[in-house]
Design a binder for these strands. Sequence first.
DNA 1: CTGTTAGCGCGTTCAT
DNA 2: ATGAACGCGCTAACAG
Lengths: 348, 348
Amino acid sequence: MTKRNPDLRSDDTSRRIAPRGVTMEEVGRLAGVSQVTVSRALSDRTKVSAATLAKIHAAIEATGFVPNAIAGALASQKSMLVSALVPSITNIVYAAALQAFSDVLRPSGYQVLLSETGFDPQDEESMIRAHLSRRPDAVVLTGIHHTDKARQMLRAADIPVVEIWDTTETPIDLCVGFSHIAAGQAAAQFAVERGYTSAVTVSADEERALRRQSAFAARFASLTGSDVARIGCAAQASLGDGRAALGHIVEAGFSKGTVIFCSSDVLAHGILTELAVRGLSAPGDFAVIGFGDQAFAADTAPALTTLRVDRSTLGRVAAKALLARFDGHLTDERVMDIGFEVIPRGSA
Amino acid sequence: MTKRNPDLRSDDTSRRIAPRGVTMEEVGRLAGVSQVTVSRALSDRTKVSAATLAKIHAAIEATGFVPNAIAGALASQKSMLVSALVPSITNIVYAAALQAFSDVLRPSGYQVLLSETGFDPQDEESMIRAHLSRRPDAVVLTGIHHTDKARQMLRAADIPVVEIWDTTETPIDLCVGFSHIAAGQAAAQFAVERGYTSAVTVSADEERALRRQSAFAARFASLTGSDVARIGCAAQASLGDGRAALGHIVEAGFSKGTVIFCSSDVLAHGILTELAVRGLSAPGDFAVIGFGDQAFAADTAPALTTLRVDRSTLGRVAAKALLARFDGHLTDERVMDIGFEVIPRGSA
DNA sequence: CTGTTAGCGCGTTCAT
DNA sequence: ATGAACGCGCTAACAG
């Protein structure tokens, strides 16, 4: 008998204090059934008799068995993993969308593998490679700009891909977001309707924010004939950046009655803060429009006029689209526009 | 010959448009070497001749091969995955720590599998089970309160476990955080030294925040002899909650010169906001102490006096402790206190 | 309802 | 420096 005694291994583990992990084989042995039966009991309890099911559950309880999802994934070619890539997890905007996204996927057994890409497509590409090595059942990317290599790898992976936070005519696969150009235009339209004839933008140095900013400026100029200046700041704009921006605006001698379109509510909040410090008021001296409608926007003083993008809906729609795909529903609706909404409050 | 022809599979895949995933076998065939050689080339390039290495890389390039980490993990018994469980990813406090944590682990090839537990130990337990099924090489938990079952599963998994955001004499394994009691006491001490003789706390309904609040109240009372009232709000406290809290404080008739200790900077910011709206000032009318030293704390008006906890350091220390463990360094320093710091600014 | 047999794609011996 | 054989723990046919 050259064949290895199958019991050797169990003898080895029985000597150990902490086994490497209980297997279905061991659970089955204890329950008096084979490994497959254990597998079946766990995947579909109706495929096993009530009596054996009870014995198996007892054995699982006794051994503390936790299924090995790695082995399961290798055998079934399904990892039950969805990978998500966002620029930053400390940015509430992405975090909130991911929260909703995960919440929808979890009940179906999927877990989300998350990574930060920063704002660089090259970094994103290498993270995509790392994620694909785990054979996710789907991938979620932020934005619509990716390297050619990244697109190619994604297509080769032959799994659903969702691009979020933007819209495009040419998605890799699926797309859930809204038009940043339309958002910027809507803000301009609103500002003009409110009677403002002069405007400045304060915008984070981030591609989508810049697109909103440009659209605002173009529309505002075409509507009023007045040029729109731009003040820039870091990609992760802070309250302090907003305060500093107002300083520049005031010192540049912008006339009172100017409206300030910010690329985020945080920047807008900074503007409001600095306004108060300088004894100025909104919208009397300067009007302020934010972006995002974050939790605090309704509670600033004055309350912040802003553009709402429903981050939860974004995540939820993306997740549901994936679940539909996993169920074989091949929707022809590949790009889903969740829109946005101007929320008029006190600041403009 | 009943044995399946090993070439059948490759013939099948050659007919496909999108193969299920290129294998080392296929890469090797194209490079004229065996599967093992490809494996070696990828794990340690020096174990393969320069000539074959080149051929292998060419084949990888040509096929778009991406290693299957699932198969790798099953074979090597190493998933290169670290699972992390936090109450909420939209809470900047946890997100920032995770960011640093991931950044330290990534260069070593580890990825972080993240899940939200909410604030319920029972939910945490089931998420732990789900995570353990993926056979992570380590687990990170938030806080020191977990169900017995959870502790038991974790021990059975026989992998490093790090509890973060708190300290304890009896960690499951490792622990990285700070003493919430000491933090509350330090805030009270500071308040007393600044001359405040009356205090109120505004605290989120969350275990660690409540512990800080109690410690503050106890120390403040023992130092001044005056009782400390408590105002509570939701676990995820908002700016609006802070504003409302000040309303209660004012209406309850607290004397001016009272110091308000908040469980988060966001709440404190809300207090400052409402103070300004009511024409009151800090610290003249009411002094405010926050907690966390978030990015905006230095830029509020007045700047917020707060307790700083270095979230990046927290994440970094936890990650480094794990890397040391992976390298076999069995430190006897199991609980690491990263401390905190009182940051005196204008509000108190 | 239950067991047998084959892989899933890789790392890890052990040869050569 | 390279290859053959084996096994990681599970799911997926196929029998009975």
